[in-house]
């Protein structure tokens, strides 16, 4: 661990029972997650990358939306900490029989869950779950609202390459309107002091201009403002990080965009567009990618593309979050 790169205030304690969004995290808490993730990376580097930290803890992974990478990432993370893992996919559960979310959470609790990692298609659903569940809820993505573990792994990946992101130009390019990744990244990156730019066509930026405007003279306490634009060239100029977001075909059906072809031509992340960014600018994508739409295939595989590193770091960040929510202390991980 390089302690000089990641400042660690000595007296920070993890205060959160649940992790529903990153908006409630102070910068010190975010740094604690980063520091704990460093410790988890060390664990992952061992020949046997498993510690008994969550032995006897039941982690139920309750996903109401199809997902492979996030679900597997949480499952691997929990197993690396020796937790007992129960997987519930909504399509194969009683949800399709009309059982309410509240009933499902109570049932999962009765079956012994200590923590629930939850993904849901409706914004805010984890807040309802947190109200009825006596253990901890870790939000694995809710509607358009939040994806805290993704934002934290994104930040971790940026810091691994750039050091402190304060003042670094980070561009999120694409469909932010429907993106929980974008919203959580706004909170974490403005807390970390990044120069955040959000870019995309006006129809799928809607509302973010209002948000940026409200934060123009200083954001929420502990957060800096950010910039919203449809001018890709201005957004990418001298960027340190460019993160492209997935564009879904449904957006065309809703009349938000004329065509995938037009989107790719005007907003796709290509080598030509990337040329105005800093030479070593990181290329990121939360996945799954539509290559040739929001990101050109040759960009995704550039040396400075850290897309697969995001996946690896995702396991470590999720280990850190599970560990902190279970009441662990970062210093104790390697001895656990």
């Amino acid at each position: 661990m390089n302690a000089s790169r990641i400042p660690t205030p000595p007296d920070v304690a993890w205060q959160q029972k649940h992790l529903l969004d990153v908006d409630v995290l102070s910068l010190a808490e975010i740094q604690l997650v980063m520091r704990t993730t460093d410790a988890m990376k060390e664990v992952l580097a061992r020949p046997i990358s498993k510690v008994p930290a969550l032995r006897g803890t039941n982690v139920t992974i309750l996903f109401y939306e199809a997902s492979t990478r996030t679900r597997v990432s949480f499952e691997v993370a929990a197993k690396n900490l020796s937790a007992d893992v129960v997987n519930i996919a909504a399509s194969s559960s009683s949800v399709t029989k009309g059982e309410s979310l509240v009933d499902t959470i109570r049932t999962v609790e009765a079956l012994g869950a200590d923590m629930i990692v939850m993904r849901h298609g409706t914004s805010g659903a984890p807040y309802l779950a947190a109200e009825v569940f006596s253990g901890s809820i870790l939000n694995g993505g809710d509607g358009w609202h939040a994806h805290p573990s993704q934002a934290l792994l994104d930040l971790y990946t940026m810091r691994a390459h750039l050091g402190d992101v304060r003042g670094k130009k980070v561009v999120i390019l694409g469909d932010v309107l429907h993106s929980r990744v974008a919203r959580s990244n706004v909170w974490s990156l403005t807390a970390a002091g990044a120069d955040l730019w959000i870019c995309g066509p006006t129809t799928i930026l809607r509302g973010f201009d209002t948000w940026a405007g409200r934060w123009a003279s200083g954001g929420a306490p502990g957060h800096v403002g950010f910039t919203v634009t449809s001018d890709v060239g201005a957004a990418l100029r001298d960027a340190d990080v460019v993160m492209a977001l997935r564009l879904q075909r449904e957006r065309m059906d809703a009349g938000l965009l004329p065509s995938l072809r037009e989107y790719a031509a005007r907003f796709g992340l290509t080598r030509e567009r990337l040329a105005v960014a800093k030479p070593a600018a990181l290329v990121m994508h939360p996945g799954p990618m539509n290559e040739g739409v929001e990101i050109a295939p040759d960009v995704a595989v550039l040396d400075r593309s850290v897309i697969t590193e995001q996946v690896t770091n995702g396991v470590a960040v999720r280990m850190a979050l599970l560990y902190l929510l279970a009441g662990g202390h970062p210093e104790a991980v390697t001895n656990a």
């Binding site: 805010g124 809710d142 948000w211």
Partner: peptide, 16 residues
């Protein structure tokens, strides 16, 4: 639509 179009709906990820 879920909540009044504006800052609150945007931040909460609710359809305006």
């Amino acid at each position: 639509a879920e909540a009044n179009e504006g800052l609150v709906a945007t931040i909460l990820g609710l359809k305006g």
